[in-house]
Design a binder for these strands. Structure first.
Lengths: 345, 345
DNA sequence: CTGAAAGCGCTTACAG
DNA sequence: CTGAAAGCGCTTACAG
């Protein structure tokens, strides 16, 4: 590889002059500058980043650690992070942990060995120790979709509790009073928070009018699991008019089960999803869903950590919270009795 | 940040000894080694990567440039790249170009400024010049899902022409003789290759028995576009029994249109998708599709470029080609006349 | 087995 | 405006 010394020799100037041509072109005599630039161009010279970074004491690299990049939520998040980084001339190392906390801590070591300036992470449960040791090494941290739990770090999140509340309120307003909650394990913080939001909202409703909630837990939040769960539930008849789903795939699986049993959505049963995946709007029954601003979340997280890297002393840790939004499509409708009521009034 | 010099001072040894403790622990006296390791541990010391890389002349960083990380194909590809890199202790910088060749060339500059050792890229059309200049700078290249076009580079690809052939042969074997080809612009190389595969296979069939192909082109390969295109096509009646789709979303959109017109899939019309996305198996009508080994593609590409980085002189450029696979589910079936024929024989 | 020294490629005061 | 020199943090022969 050509070095700055080769360029200097070829251009007949000193080594410092070449460096100035690259970093402070305005202080060179125009003729000298042109001469040097031409040689750089001709040789295809690119300064050695390691040497530059060694001098500068920084490298404009950040790491992004996610549990599952195949999940559309994290894909969008990654896009947001990338675009924010690109705009600030930073670069992102992507680390996909496949939900394994062992792999997560290995990746943290890799990133620290790379001396990244900051790490954006949606940590697995119980990895606060590994994270604390990262911050001790002077690497800045921003937590995505998780509370900071006493760590010196910024965090960005979606208000999941509000998301749960949105879903329940929507069905409640449509007159639903018996609702299936079809979701995953409460070990998943997002699931727990949404359920908490649902319970809270429930308690604000006078007991006489309070919807009855039937909880069904899925091992894995997939369409096929949801299909089976609803098929099984329907064996004992149908004692509900609405379903709140943990994500859109669950909603699609549930709708398939209803259709197979000739139960019409939304005439007989309303179904609401979560995440508002790309496909939600093009489904057979376009899905009502809760949209999470994953891209914005990633963009904001990257901006936070980059601003911390650029201005460590002036930086104050903060928590940014985004609100999910209800997207109403065709999979939810007023209950029959509610429609009747509406006609009367 | 602590440096190797601080560690040496704290441990009461020379600077070279600390370095040896890190890089060649076996040559130190056990007592000295333990002493130094303890200090390293206590201080949370991490060697400066820039300095190491400057000495070593390499940094174990590769770049991955993709047009759209939201596309499940590229998401899976990225997972493969990441896992291969992780296994080889490399790290991946992710670059998402949003299909813009301007952004692509900016990213190439960024990556070259970072002095990555290699770049994996699915290039936009007409960027061979930018790529050539990258290789001139001594950065190794591997092309993903594109021919190398005279570049000094390895390449990995899926045999798209064979994929097209698989789809056509499947419908042909089921007795379909009038088939709609619902796909995107031939400017997209994959689309062009698949269509070429279809035409080739067509020509191998005796003219008397050769299926009639009706081509419909979509501006954008989305479910809603496909829905509209099929709705419009059906206005003039139904003169086909099968549909070959450019991707699974198109297939899902088409099926929705058929259902709305009370045309049953697969009894009246067979529909075959492409990509075998996660959701294909859980759709209302589980989709027959062509599966592309995206993860494997990424893994192989990363392995190729890493082996080139590790052994530049022994390396020989190569092209690795993967075969797509036909995944038969419930959206395709024999035509009615074919079923009759089967009964007779 | 340990320690002093050279050098990786660059940037930036500093003297001219 | 130009050029010689120091030093960023590390690794690795080399002498002891």
């Amino acid at each position: 590889m050509a070095s700055i010394r080769d360029v200097a020799k070829a251009a007949g100037v000193s080594l410092g002059t070449v460096s100035n041509a690259i970093n402070r072109p305005e202080i060179l005599a125009p003729r000298t500058l042109r001469k040097v630039q031409k040689v750089i161009e001709d040789m295809g010279f690119v300064p050695n980043a390691s040497a530059r970074n060694l001098r500068a004491g920084r490298n404009r690299v950040i790491g992004l650690v996610v549990p599952d990049i195949s999940n559309p939520f994290f894909t969008d998040l990654a896009r947001g992070v990338n675009n924010a980084a690109f705009a600030a001339k930073y670069v992102v190392i992507l680390c996909n942990t496949d939900e394994s906390s062992e792999k997560e801590s290995q990746y943290l070591d890799v990133l620290s060995a790379q001396n990244v300036e900051g790490i954006l992470i949606t940590p697995a449960r119980e990895t606060t120790r590994a994270l604390a040791s990262v911050t001790e090494k002077g690497i800045r941290l921003a937590l995505v979709d998780r509370p900071a739990l006493g760590l010196q770090a910024c965090s960005v999140a979606v208000n999941d509790s509000y998301g749960g509340s949105l879903a329940l309120t929507h069905l409640y307003d449509l007159g639903h009073r018996s609702i299936v909650l079809l979701t995953g394990s409460e070990d998943i913080p997002q699931v727990a928070d949404r359920n908490a939001g649902i319970r809270e909202t429930l308690n604000e409703i006078p007991a006489s009018d309070r919807p009855n909630i039937i909880e069904l837990r899925l091992d894995s939040m997939s369409a096929s699991n949801a299909y089976s769960a609803i098929m099984k539930k329907l064996e004992s008849g149908i004692d509900f008019t609405g379903v709140i789903c943990g994500n859109d795939l669950i909603a699609l699986g549930a709708i398939r089960a209803f259709r197979e049993k000739n139960i019409s959505v939304p005439e007989d049963v309303s179904v609401i999803g979560y995440d508002d995946i790309d496909f939600a709007g093009s489904a057979n029954v376009p899905l009502t869903s809760i949209s999470q601003p994953a891209y914005e979340l990633g963009y904001a997280a990257a901006e936070l950590i980059i601003s911390e890297c650029e201005n460590p002393e002036r930086h104050v840790h903060q928590r940014v919270e985004f609100q999910p939004r209800l997207i109403v499509r065709s999979s939810t409708a007023p209950t029959k009795s509610h429609r009747a009521t509406l006609k009367i009034s």
